[in-house]
Amino acid sequence: MKKSQPEIGLFIPCYVDQFFPQVAIATLELLEKLGCKVSYPLGQTCCGQPLANAGYERDTEGSSRHFLELFKQFDYIVAPSGSCVLHVKEHFPKLSDMEQEQNRVHDRIYELTEFLTDVLKVDSLKGSFPKKVGFHSSCHGLRGLRLASSSEMNVTPFNKAKQLLQNLEGLEWVELSRVDECCGFGGTFSVTEEALSVQMGRDRLQDHQSHQVEIVTGGDMSCLMHLQGIADREGSSLKFMHVAEILNQAIL
């Protein structure tokens, strides 16, 4: 990090806060290990994504305003979720009296892996994680934030999470048959289109299983929660870890 320590605000999505505190802890510890000055502003609520994706963006003014107030003074905002970061960047309703704060937050908010590769300029990390790892490319991070090249496009392939993971000692990166197909979570979709959602999840799991993956990782716990929910119900031995957990565990 530079000498004048930038202040990083840790944005922890509500469901991570409630269900996956270990992912938030890993994110915090990882950033600290990399020399960052991180704080977690208290009083965070849901960013409003579920409501907006359900068609009620107009009802998220309150939560958006609250978010901007909480985070506006930070130099960077980092979250272990591509989906929620994309929501903050693209789907906050326009708040005419907070345009400046909105622009500032838009330009300073990062998903964890892109913060590591693009801001901290981490090329590769030293550490060890001797497992066969399958990566679930969550759609909002992939095609919204461009955390990796999408398989549809004719561009030079890249993947920011892979860049961080692939040099860990012993880690075997597994290439899937369908590298970036959606898992079927989709927020409220997982409930309103239950049958499709579950089938899509099963198909993703099948891809990982047929490649003898031991640990499924990814940048969004929402997708992993959905996949794990199906895997657990079906008695699968697949394990699920957020990228932050692997990195934090690996680099010691």
Binding site: D17, F20, I25, Q44, G201
Partner: peptide
Amino acid sequence: KNRDLPEAPKESFQEWYK
């Protein structure tokens, strides 16, 4: 119907952080 719920942790991150 077809999915387990995540195991509920002892405390939220916010509680841990405090």
